[in-house]
């Protein structure tokens, strides 16, 4: 009698390590989560499209138009009607995704097409804003992080909570892309300035200057107070650098994700109020990608159900979509 063949432990380990790495990018997620992330990205893109003054870009003199690489085929800033048409297309695509996309027969093609149109339109508008002589980073995180979801299946249902790879890879790839971007913003500080970015008067003077060219910020007095009280500027700078460089931890450890969401809002609201740099699109993108929306909704529904039962009323009913 011979013993059954057993794979060497090292080969098994290699396979499981390989699987672990594979799962980081291509692992399963619930279809409901994909649906939530796509819906929230579309809301963010539509809101940004409506609220940002894109039509005002029209009429820029030729000498001030320095086309971004992505729109280098343009000779001049497009006329106002073209920009408005793109805005309408983006909002229309978002509405179609929500309204027509609910119909089981049309769900797949409408959702995929509508999301792609909204992304392309937003990409175009963002490229126009980046065509004014300097790289415009504010919309770029959303542009890159929302791109993988263009290739997501369109048949996800909110009622389906069973994690699957074909729904998960787009979310995980988006999180990885976002992590690369955040990490580079920190790494470039280290490469350009070393630890002097933290342990020097860098942040003190950044707080004192305020906006680019020295205009006042919403909390200029607080910023100046912080600047004058060492080591608060150094602590502020250290927190920023640690947050940015360590961002890829969210790819490896799901438990740290809520902490990074909170940190992102603290960091970016701090830069809005103290430095006058409005990067709120970034924490919004972080929040959409890092929170497990179906789990949150289920938890809130369960809590509300328990509260309703305790008061004797009938629990809320959630129609499956």
């Amino acid at each position: 009698m011979s013993a059954p063949p057993v794979a060497p432990a090292s080969a098994t380990d290699r396979r499981s390590v390989g699987r672990w790495f594979d799962d980081l990018l291509f692992g399963p997620e619930a279809p409901a989560r994909l649906l939530a992330v796509q819906a929230l990205f579309l809301v963010l893109i539509a809101v940004r499209t409506v609220l940002s003054p894109y039509p005002k870009l029209a009429g820029a003199p030729e000498a001030l138009f320095k086309p971004a690489w992505a729109v280098s085929w343009l000779d001049a800033m497009p006329p106002r009607w073209v920009i408005v048409l793109v805005q309408v297309a983006i909002v229309g695509a978002a509405v179609a995704w929500f309204v027509i996309g609910r119909h089981p027969q049309w769900r797949g093609p409408v959702r995929r097409g509508a999301y792609a149109i909204a992304w392309l339109g937003f990409f175009f508008l963002a490229a126009l804003r980046g065509s004014r002589g300097k790289i415009f980073h504010i919309e770029l995180l959303l542009v890159w992080a929302s791109l993988p979801l263009v290739f997501a299946p369109g048949d996800a249902r909110w009622s389906d909570r069973r994690p699957q790879r074909r729904y998960g890879w787009t979310i995980r790839t988006a999180i990885a892309a976002m992590s690369v971007i955040y990490c580079f913003t920190g790494l470039q500080k280290l490469r350009a300035s070393g630890l002097g970015w933290v342990f020097s008067d860098n942040m003190k003077w950044a707080l004192a200057w305020g906006r680019v060219r020295g205009e006042a910020t919403p909390l200029q007095d607080v910023a100046v107070w912080l600047a004058a009280h060492r080591p608060l500027p150094e602590i502020f700078a250290l927190c920023i650098l640690v947050f940015e460089v360590s961002f890829p931890l969210v790819v490896f450890f799901r438990r740290v994700r809520p902490a990074f969401v909170v940190a992102a809002w603290l960091f970016h609201m701090g830069t809005v109020l103290l430095l006058g740099l409005d990067y709120t699109m970034w924490p919004a993108t972080v929040t959409i990608l890092l929170l497990d929306w179906p789990a949150i909704v289920d938890r809130v529904s369960g809590w509300r159900g328990r509260t309703v039962q305790a008061t004797g009323a009938s629990p809320p009913v959630h129609p499956a979509t």
């Binding site: 971004a68 690489w69 990409f123 490229a127 770029l140 542009v143 892309a177 913003t185 500080k189 860098n202």
Partner: peptide, 24 residues
């Protein structure tokens, strides 16, 4: 993303992500 970031090549939407990286 990593290649453009590491080499600090600026071709929107590709960028080196040098956001306020120089000491003030």
């Amino acid at each position: 993303l990593i290649w453009f970031g590491w080499n600090k090549v600026e071709h929107w939407p590709f960028t080196g992500w040098r956001l306020y990286s120089n000491v003030k």
